[in-house]
């Protein structure tokens, strides 16, 4: 059964057709890799899939049902990692993640969060305001969501490897692989060549004038 599919998806921005009639079907265990030059609309495609961006035409289907008709279910199963990290710079990593879990209705203890932040090499930085962390560390905090939301079946990741060191890339690659093996579906974009040893579908977007 397809976890996520797009049917003739088109997005217009600034009166410019970013992409037109994008189709794909992603099953459980599936990895979709979105490629394309800058400005081709990779980020817009991911945002359109999550429903943040309004589409001009076409539909997105989650478990063969239109996403627009079952937002709550879709949001329960989705983790989105975008350009903007969604972390308040004045709050600590811990406060940010606790707040996110509350918004997502995820029951976790503070100890769990400490454990996950430790796994992401953020020991001792849990209570520092996120604004004081380096760019890479901030992204690690945001990525902790992948560890926290165990009920998710779909990850939408926009450039997840940016600003991570080699250790971070290895950690994330392993997490993505584990998730895929466990039956999750992943959509991601990346500027670097993807280092994941896993069969994948590719979707190439071209820059259009």
């Amino acid at each position: 059964m397809s976890v996520l599919s797009a049917d003739n998806l088109s997005v217009v921005k600034n009166d410019r057709l970013l992409f037109d009639k994008v189709n794909f079907t992603l099953a459980a265990h599936g990895l979709l890799y979105v490629k394309g030059p800058n400005g081709a609309g990779k980020t817009s495609l991911l945002r359109a899939i999550t429903g943040l961006l309004e589409t001009e035409d076409g539909g997105v289907y989650f478990l063969n049902q239109k996403v627009a008709l079952q937002r709550t279910l879709f949001h329960q199963q989705l983790v989105y990692f975008g350009h903007k990290l969604g972390l308040n710079l004045r709050l600590s990593a811990l406060e940010n993640l606790v707040f996110w879990c509350e918004q997502q209705n995820i029951q976790v203890s503070q100890d769990d969060i400490y454990g996950i932040l430790g796994e992401l090499s953020l020991v001792g930085l849990e209570d520092v305001p996120v604004g004081h962390l380096s760019a890479g560390q901030q992204r690690r905090v945001a990525l902790a969501r992948l560890w926290l939301k165990t009920a998710a079946s779909l990850w939408v990741l926009d450039e997840p490897f940016t600003a991570l060191d080699s250790n971070g890339i290895a950690l994330l690659t392993k997490k993505v692989m584990d998730f895929l093996h466990a039956g999750g579906a992943v959509i991601m974009t990346s500027h670097q060549e993807l280092q994941i040893e896993y069969p994948r579908q590719e979707l190439v977007l071209e820059y259009r004038i």
Binding site: T50, G51, H75, G82, H83, K84, L87, Q103, Q104, N105
Partner: peptide, 15 residues
């Protein structure tokens, strides 16, 4: 702030 740091996106994707 929520718009600029992206917290708003996550609020919109919550239940």
């Amino acid at each position: 702030d929520d718009y600029q740091d992206g917290s708003l996106e996550h609020l919109m994707l919550s239940t």
